[in-house]
Design a protein around this nucleic acid. Structure first.
Lengths: 203, 203
DNA sequence: ACCTGAACACCGTTCAAGT
DNA sequence: ACCTGAACACCGTTCAAGT
């Protein structure tokens, strides 16, 4: 078979197909990915020399690009942080099965690193002390990641965990009566508390 | 080979060996686990009919038992919550490679469910509204889980991510100058903010 | 540069069979 | 009840070879 005049694969194309496979099947298999792309497994390695792990980093990059790009760094730090957090969480919540895979490996996608750097610059300009800045980023990051995991595998499963007088079951029933997305609402409550609390670090 | 007079395996023993393997190698392989236990792979399935996933749930149970047990439910909700959160996070932080595996599957370990139920009861007695209670638990849970992941794969790797004038690199350098565990310190800052903020829900 | 095809070592899971 | 041994379908990764 001749070498095609135009490459049949690109990194973005592979990462996008991998993302779809995870969304649909809940897992990533390189043989299946190759089959979807009408290509042999080993040719994926030509674009991602480090194999599976690098493909997953590609997905992280895709997701970051998708939602983080158009943030205006000149707005106030509170608003910037809130939007940054919201976008991150919703990007991940849209791909529930991907999130646990992302937690399995260290962040190296340049788009993701750049978006954290952008947040750090906004916070520095807002006057956060050098000693505090990493803590601020870290606290936000932890909560967003945890919330994304919560959106992936909601606590609601625990409904049938205990006896009928269970405090947790009662709370779940009460929450079910409320409209909207429980996980998203929890996220918003926590985020507002965190931003208000972190603002105190500015004196 | 005769059937041994005393069983050679128990669930706890298998889960503990699995935990050690993950701590030491960063991954869990049932064939290797069987070899360590001087047993054939299929005999693991006699104790954990659902295989690998159930073994990992066993580890979750082990970790929960290890640290959650001796919490006195009569203390104030703030103190209870703080200790509960601290213990959870440190139990997970002691086993960094385990945390991502735990996020891959739904919680079903009864010990873990019981500890969330205990927290919910303390919060209810403290006067949290039924509509708020699940959000309170969820916000705490998200932050703890995210913090455990942060303890597993610290942000500090990002030190060499950018140019020398990077705001993130500067923040990392400033934080390195502080004594103690950066991830743990971030956790404490966030936890105190969250508990104070959640207290406002009591009016 | 870009892709193929075959090979390798390794998985998790199942099942009939032993005592 | 508790364990063995073999078999199955499936992984991720590598590498020589094609054009």
């Amino acid at each position: 078979m001749p070498r095609p005049s135009v490459p049949r694969l690109s990194r973005d194309q592979i990462a996008a197909a991998a993302l779809s496979q995870i969304d649909e099947t809940g897992a990533l298999s390189l043989p299946k990915l190759a089959a979807t792309l009408n290509v042999s497994v080993s040719s994926i390695y030509h674009h991602f020399a480090n194999g599976r792990e690098e493909v997953i980093e590609g997905i992280r990059g895709l997701l970051t690009r998708e939602v983080i790009d158009p943030l205006d760094p000149t707005m106030g730090w509170r608003e910037y942080t809130e939007q940054w957090a919201h976008r991150y969480r919703s990007a991940m919540a849209r791909h529930p099965h991907v999130v646990p895979l992302l937690t399995l490996q260290t962040v190296s996608a340049p788009e993701t690193l750049a978006s954290y750097e952008a947040l750090a610059m906004v916070l520095r300009k807002a006057g956060f002390a050098a000693d505090d800045l990493l803590h601020v980023v870290s606290v936000l990051d932890c909560f967003i990641l945890g919330s994304a995991l919560d959106a992936s595998a909601p606590l609601d499963v625990w409904a049938d965990s205990g006896a009928p007088e269970s405090a947790l079951s009662a709370a779940i029933a009460a929450t079910r009566a409320q409209p909207g997305d429980r996980s998203r609402r929890s996220f918003e409550i926590g985020l507002h508390i965190l931003i208000a609390g972190l603002a105190d670090l500015l004196r």
